[in-house]
Amino acid sequence: MIAPLAYPTLLRMLRTPRLWMSLTAWCALVLAFAFAARSAGSLRGADYVLSRVYGALVVPFAAYVLVGAVLGGRSLRASTEPLASFGAAPARVAGAMVLVTAGACALLCAALGSVVALVAHGAADPPPVRDAIASGYAGALGGGAYAAWLSLGASFGRRGGGRVVWLAMDWLLGSNEGAAALFTPRGHLRNLLGDAPPMDLSERASAAALLALAAVCTLWAARRAE
């Protein structure tokens, strides 16, 4: 049952050229910073680019454009209507959409995180392969959580405009080490990428929190679509 519900979302991502152009632009931006750090001989180039550019800008905005492309400028509820008209439950359609988007975003962010870690690697950074694996792992968790977070945001507002509010909320609440950052993907992704943790949380706890955040947002979004 999941496959026919997931297939249209997958094809939508593959067949939307504007999405590919946006993603290419974001990837090019972070890679440009990575190459610049490498050519400047920065000692902690990977650390800097991953936390300040990749984690702070590229992961959230890649998730934002992916969610936007999947929803096609509609709210999450409205974007379930085409498959619901074939007899599928809107909650299941929404769940499948969020899962596929989160999966695609996780894959993209994992691959990009690993490449950035390798390209921007500096002398004071951890060993490159270990750093690439850790960055890929952090990127996958962060990308998935952001996609679910923004999909939930898109369930608010007539045309899914809530995702802008949720992106801003993530920015405002997740940019410090306070308790509020515990409830945003940004706080935990910063921790996994080597920045200051929210409430002194361990990296393992932040990874679990990102998974939990993704699960809660997916379920909540599906429920709101019903």
């Binding site: 939508r12 067949r15 096609g72 085409p82 619901a84 008209s85 074939f86 007899g87 599928a88 439950a89």
Partner: peptide, 16 residues
């Protein structure tokens, strides 16, 4: 649901 088909005036289909 599987046995019901509804066609509103503004029918939408998965356009991808």
């Amino acid at each position: 649901r599987k046995q019901v088909a509804r066609l509103p005036l503004d029918t939408v289909l998965p356009d991808a």
